[in-house]
Amino acid sequence: MEKKTIIGLTFTKEGEKNVNGEVLEENVEAVKEYATSFGYELRSQVTINVPVKHYEQTKAKDYKSFFPTQNKNLQNIGEEFKLSLYSQRWGHNDFYTLTKTEEGWNVTTNKLKNAKGDKHAGPHIENALTGESISFPSDIGYFLSDIWDASQTKSKEEVQSYFYELSEWISTTEKTKPNFGALLI
């Protein structure tokens, strides 16, 4: 009987039951990163030789379902979403990454790495855009909060489409704002 290798993982978190799961070897790092985003720590990792049928069943499983947070209707936790915003100052688009957390959004830019923010991505997204002289709506935080709430029941692709719309709106505003720099000559 042919055997294949899978990895058995156990994660712990204070005040929670241990989480056990089986994954393919190539998914171990992604599972660890995902678990860490929920505050879990890897307790043990074992290599298991299993029949091909068991391997195929393991391959079909979504490792995110191992974690109880998914059962509390918190979807897209740990997922990254992109804002692609035009900068008149630099003449090109820059990317702003927002990673969904249980509390809000972590913001990553050229100058920030995973800065923890609330559902409004505050204060980091506004500070980043202001620092780059990008015009944006004063209520951007409310839009990001609405997207966070919607992401509870929407697919990652649907949520990213909201970020595309927001990117387009901000970029259009930035591209069409007047440039009064010529008046200083």
Rank of each mutant, 00 (worst) to 15 (best):
92 H>M: 10
81 F>E: 00
17 K>V: 07
121 A>H: 13
44 S>K: 10
72 K>I: 15
174 E>K: 10
150 A>D: 11
108 T>H: 11
86 Y>P: 03
126 E>M: 08
82 K>Y: 09
73 N>H: 10
89 R>C: 04
146 D>H: 07
72 K>A: 10
22 E>N: 05
18 N>M: 12
150 A>H: 03
139 D>T: 13
51 P>E: 12
43 R>C: 03
165 E>W: 09
41 E>V: 14
96 Y>C: 05
101 T>D: 13
143 F>Y: 15
10 T>R: 06
91 G>H: 05
118 D>N: 15
69 T>Q: 09
88 Q>N: 00
12 T>A: 09
99 T>V: 07
105 W>I: 10
107 V>W: 02
31 V>C: 07
136 F>L: 14
108 T>C: 01
47 T>S: 00
149 D>I: 08
44 S>M: 02
45 Q>M: 11
145 S>Y: 05
138 S>N: 15
11 F>L: 02
10 T>G: 03
112 L>R: 09
86 Y>Q: 02
27 N>Y: 08
99 T>D: 01
51 P>T: 02
78 G>Q: 06
148 W>F: 14
134 I>L: 07
147 I>P: 05
141 G>H: 02
5 T>Y: 00
177 K>S: 06
33 E>W: 10
30 A>F: 01
61 K>M: 00
134 I>T: 09
132 E>R: 13
34 Y>I: 01
162 Y>A: 08
146 D>V: 06
175 K>S: 10
44 S>R: 00
127 N>E: 15
141 G>V: 15
68 P>G: 14
96 Y>Q: 08
34 Y>T: 00
122 G>L: 04
100 K>C: 00
141 G>N: 11
101 T>Y: 14
56 E>M: 09
43 R>L: 09
60 A>H: 10
24 L>W: 08
133 S>L: 15
78 G>M: 05
109 T>W: 01
89 R>E: 09
165 E>Q: 14
51 P>C: 03
84 S>V: 05
157 E>P: 04
119 K>M: 15
159 V>F: 06
156 K>A: 12
167 S>F: 06
155 S>L: 06
87 S>T: 08
72 K>T: 13
131 G>H: 11
154 K>F: 04
127 N>Y: 14
153 T>F: 11
9 L>S: 05
183 L>V: 13
12 T>K: 06
42 L>S: 01
165 E>K: 09
77 I>R: 06
46 V>I: 14
49 N>W: 00
172 T>L: 05
173 T>A: 12
185 I>K: 03
115 A>C: 10
140 I>Q: 12
71 N>T: 15
138 S>E: 11
70 Q>M: 15
3 K>M: 13
33 E>M: 09
143 F>M: 12
176 T>P: 03
121 A>Y: 14
47 T>I: 01
163 F>M: 06
48 I>L: 13
182 A>P: 00
55 Y>I: 06
3 K>L: 15
93 N>F: 08
30 A>C: 09
9 L>C: 04
24 L>F: 10
132 E>P: 02
171 S>C: 03
144 L>M: 07
148 W>Y: 11
115 A>T: 01
173 T>E: 02
64 K>L: 04
21 G>F: 11
155 S>H: 12
81 F>C: 11
185 I>V: 00
67 F>L: 05
93 N>A: 03
11 F>S: 05
67 F>C: 05
5 T>K: 01
